[in-house]
């Protein structure tokens, strides 16, 4: 059985007009899976179902069956600011029912891996945002989980701290053969994953490796960004004839299989055009743009 095995999960909140998750099936084993989707797409609900904080209306969580194999990093760090990192980690080990000698060895290993050796006896309330994130990661890993759930774990971190966070995850994942499920808004973070799953309105709309997801967009993608204050309407006739396959989003349009001629004909006073190899951000835009609005 896979480390993560969810089948036909439907979940909803009281008063909502549609389910937060609609028959979602997901399995993963020893992979890093990025969960992409706009706000309200169901990413956090999927994680809450997975960790047992939300009971699904239908479907079944086949794995993980209990909480002993789970480590969870939430959007905001869950360390206690009044305790030191060491005290937080000892507490996390106790909550996972790990004996003291295990906790001592695990703390020594984790702080070396995560770079917290000099901060071990500092109260978490005195740490920087990046340090608290790393302390929180150590907390989540104290029980030596088989599955690590990351819910937008780099929220509020600068570029350097983000890169450091992800390289730490990759190192520990390789060492401990972890299955990682990471919700993110960021295409560049999702590029690090073995596989990306794209959610839209509670349903999986794309699932595959980053290369597999990029392939349908062709070799070149054009991003047409409206200039501030510009309207879609004047550009619409031009794009209808120049790139009928384009899809609109609020800030402009995205064109798969783009040709370089778009740059020459684009009304530059209204919009800018960038043509490049497709990224997961383009994949995200392509799948989450309203297809009914395609020109």
């Amino acid at each position: 059985m896979s480390a993560i095995d969810l089948r036909a999960i439907t979940a909803s909140y009281p008063g909502a007009h549609r389910p937060a998750l609609d028959a979602v099936t997901l399995a993963a084993d020893r992979q890093m899976v990025a969960l992409l989707g706009p706000n309200g797409s169901g990413k956090s609900t999927l994680m809450r179902v997975l960790v047992g904080l939300h009971k699904p209306d239908a479907g079944e969580v086949f794995s993980p069956r209990d909480r002993t194999s789970l480590g969870v990093v939430f959007q905001s760090p869950a360390v206690d600011d009044l305790l030191t990192i060491r005290e937080n980690l000892i507490l996390a080990a106790a909550l996972c029912r790990k004996p003291r000698p295990f906790a001592r060895d695990r703390i020594a290993w984790l702080v070396t891996q995560i770079g917290l050796e000099d901060l071990l006896d500092t109260r978490c309330g005195r740490l920087s945002g990046g340090q608290r994130r790393r302390a929180d990661l150590a907390r989540a890993l104290m029980g030596q989980p088989g599955v690590l759930i990351l819910d937008e774990p780099t929220t509020g971190l600068d570029i350097d701290a983000r890169a450091r966070f992800w390289s730490t995850i990759e190192r520990i994942r390789a060492e401990e053969h972890l299955t990682v499920l990471a919700a993110t808004h960021l295409g560049d973070e999702a590029e690090r994953a073995d596989r990306a799953v794209l959610l839209r309105q509670g349903r999986i709309v794309a699932d595959g490796s980053p290369d597999e997801l990029r392939r349908p967009l062709g070799g070149r993608v054009a991003r047409i960004d409206l200039r501030p204050g510009a309207d879609h309407d004047p550009i619409r006739p031009w794009l209808e004839s120049a790139a009928p396959q384009a899809r609109w989003w609020s800030g402009g349009a995205i064109v798969p299989d783009a040709h370089l001629g778009l740059i020459e004909t684009c009304p530059m006073d209204l919009a800018t055009v960038r043509i490049a190899a497709p990224t997961l951000e383009d994949v995200y835009l392509w799948h989450t743009a309203d297809q009914g609005a395609a020109v």
Binding site: Y13, P14, A16, A20, P38, N39, S44, T45, R48, G52, L53, H54, K55, Q75, S76, E152, T155, G156, H185, L186, G187, H232, W248, W249, S250, G251, G252, E281, Y284, L285, T288, A289, D290, G292, A293
Partner: peptide, 26 residues
Amino acid sequence: RSAHPARKPRRTASRDPLPSTQTPDP
């Protein structure tokens, strides 16, 4: 009890650097 009463999780102030994909009003 097994779980917290069903409640939509409140989002923390998170960045959302990918653009909104709401359809523009035609």
